[in-house]
Design a protein around this nucleic acid. Structure first.
Length: 555
RNA sequence: GUCCCUGUAGUUCAAUGGAUAGAACGUCAGCCUUCUAAGCUGAAUAUCUAGGUUCGAUUCCUAGCGGGGAUACCA
């Protein structure tokens, strides 16, 4: 929090709002800046005069004088330079002392938050849209942890919808072993055949009543689906504290619907059960179809009740689902507040993933399954790694490619703002250049390699005198900003902040690496630089962990 | 119709009520007897249109145009 503190102190002593202090576009202009246009206008003075007045204030102030080296006025801005020794010492000691905890804060106050993501449907593929959901959710959850929340990830699996019956209809006819293909086939067939619709309905009834061959097949296929999901979670390194299933909450949901009818929150209309939210400008929320079957809210109500019971003192409940369900969640949360729920509900939305050739959906069967994408990336990596490391054993190549492939996929989905549609181009994603996980991990592997070759042992003290290169100053300023990045990513629920930060950090580092020798440097400089790049590695690994990415020792 | 998101370089994305709007890809030209060249250096091109608020607008407001989404029984 060191840079924050200096900015706060400066703002306080100069009697300005801390938010007025900004970072200049170029680091050689200053460590931070204060625009003085506004003040100049208020006081009817020239900006230059105002700047000079502030300057005088700084150097007549004992507290500021200790940390601020100099200050220059430039075109309406007053730029501040922090004393170099002070900057290096404070930041690097903070990092070397706190290690994995550098940049963490307690702003969450230990409040209990749960994050629900990876809400997948059994009997359908886990595709690259789900990948965005799970990467986003997992990162937001991890960001909450380092901001001092007591956070838990949970998942809700939709294993009881009509889609399961549709998949089973084709599965019974041995259409395919792939459940998603079965599902897509049935959807196509039912379009112009009411007979098949009736058959599907009858399968669904058996599943709901939990009886006979259809129910047995449902259990079998459900298991196949869940095993697939679990292997993907394992690959992605994602763990849930709890997993909920629609089949386990739906019964309770129907009971709750009745209670809500009695409370007057739901009512009958045109044969269906609805919540009329017109007076809140939220339209109509259908709850139960005219044929008596459940829509989403039935299970969701029971799910929310269950989550509240499972997590004591639950304060904030987050649901990560794509933006198309925005209205639905507004409606659902309104219903909950009418029913007297006191906790905070949030829908964290993100836009969907499309392909260059257009929208994808599991219904039409053109969604890219996770496995397919993963294999493609993995194979590209294998080829490239073999070329670069002819001496590596095949097993090592495979293991490294696996870690890299996961890192690349996570990074690709997280580096883009959540309100932007990701157009997933397999060709682009397998290029591994520029703004990508590979660039960052490659830089990090360089640091690790240097530390290995120099037999580096971490020490908490550094001789800062020997860090005189301009690039070292640049890097320290970047390291200093990491705590603010953590806060910002929490405030905006935005992991892309972290991704961008990492890219910038390694852009600076690679430049430094190119310019400066570490192992061959003079002994004292070498020692200082080793400790310094070790600090860079610590911060990088912290940031990567928030994206759910593991570092590699070699690439 | 109404509501929400969105429009920045050839492409994919950044940024901010403030300084010269940044990157990456692609293209071209350099850099490995030196810590990993999946790297570094250099070169061109952009804020949809029209108004308004402001010392200052790409950002905020209004209108229009383009793209996407939602809008009671899809999941």
């Amino acid at each position: 929090m060191f840079l924050d503190k200096i900015k706060e102190l400066t703002a306080f002593e100069l009697n300005v709002n801390p938010q007025e202090l900004i970072y200049p576009p170029k680091s050689d202009w200053g460590d931070f800046s204060l625009p003085v246009f506004k003040k100049a206008q208020e006081m009817k003075l020239s900006p230059e005069k105002v700047g000079e007045d502030y300057k005088e204030k700084i150097f007549n102030n004992k507290k500021l004088e200790r940390v601020i080296e100099s200050s220059t006025y430039l075109g309406g801005y007053l730029n501040f330079f922090i004393k170099k020794e002070y900057l290096f010492k404070s930041i690097l000691e903070d990092i070397l002392k706190n290690k994995k905890k550098y940049g963490h804060n307690k702003s969450g106050g230990g409040n209990v938050n749960i994050f629900e993501y990876s809400n997948v449907n059994t009997h359908k593929d886990f595709h690259i849209g789900h990948l965005r959901n799970i990467c986003f959710g997992d990162s937001i959850y991890k960001i909450a942890l380092v901001n001092g929340f007591k956070a838990s990830p949970v998942s809700y699996i939709n294993d009881f919808g009509i889609h399961t019956a549709k998949a089973i209809w084709s599965y019974k006819k041995k259409y395919s072993e792939n459940l998603n293909k079965c599902y897509a086939n049935t959807v196509k067939k039912t379009k112009d055949d009411p007979l098949i619709v009736r058959e599907v309905t009858s399968i669904m009834t058996d599943i709901e009543k939990r009886r006979g061959e259809n129910y047995r097949l449902w259990k079998k296929t459900r298991k196949i689906s869940l095993e697939e999901f679990n292997s993907i979670y394992k690959k992605l390194g994602v763990n849930f504290k709890k997993t909920y299933f629609e089949s386990e909450v739906i019964k309770r949901g129907f009971k709750m619907v009745n209670t809500f009818i009695k409370k007057g929150i739901f009512k009958k209309s045109e044969g269906a059960i609805i919540a009329d939210l017109e007076k809140y400008n939220l339209g109509i929320l259908p709850i139960i179809r005219s044929d008596g079957t459940a829509l989403y809210p039935v299970a969701d109500l029971a799910l929310i009740e269950k989550k509240s019971k499972d997590f004591k003192n639950l304060k904030n409940s987050y649901i990560i689902v794509d933006v198309r369900q925005k209205l639905y969640f507004q409606q659902l949360f309104k219903v909950l507040s009418l029913a007297g729920y006191k906790q905070n509900f949030f829908h964290l939305s993100y836009d969907f993933v499309t392909l260059p050739e257009g929208m994808m959906s599991s219904r039409s069967g053109n969604a890219v399954p996770f496995e397919k994408l993963y294999n493609k990336v993995w194979q590209e990596l294998i080829i490239e790694t073999r070329k670069r490391h002819p001496d590596w054993k095949e097993k090592k190549i495979e293991k490294n490619s696996d870690k890299l492939a996961i890192a690349i996929l996570k990074f690709e989905t997280l580096k883009i703002s959540s309100n932007k549609i990701i157009t997933f181009d397999i060709k682009e994603a397998t290029k591994f250049d520029g703004f990508s996980a590979l660039y960052i991990l490659y830089g990090l592997a360089r640091i690790k390699s240097i530390l290995r070759k120099a037999s580096f042992r971490p020490q908490s003290q550094l001789d800062y005198k020997f860090l005189n290169d301009k690039m070292e100053k640049e890097l320290v300023s970047k390291l200093a900003k990491y705590p603010e990045i953590i806060i910002k990513s929490q405030k905006d629920y935005d992991p892309s902040e972290i991704a961008k930060y990492l890219f910038q950090l390694f852009k600076t580092f690679n430049e430094y690496y190119q310019k400066v020798k570490i192992i061959q440097a003079e002994e004292k400089t070498k020692k200082a630089r080793l400790g310094f790049v070790y600090a860079v590695a610590l911060v990088a690994q912290n940031a990567l962990s928030l994206l759910g990415i593991d570092p590699l020792d070699e690439i």
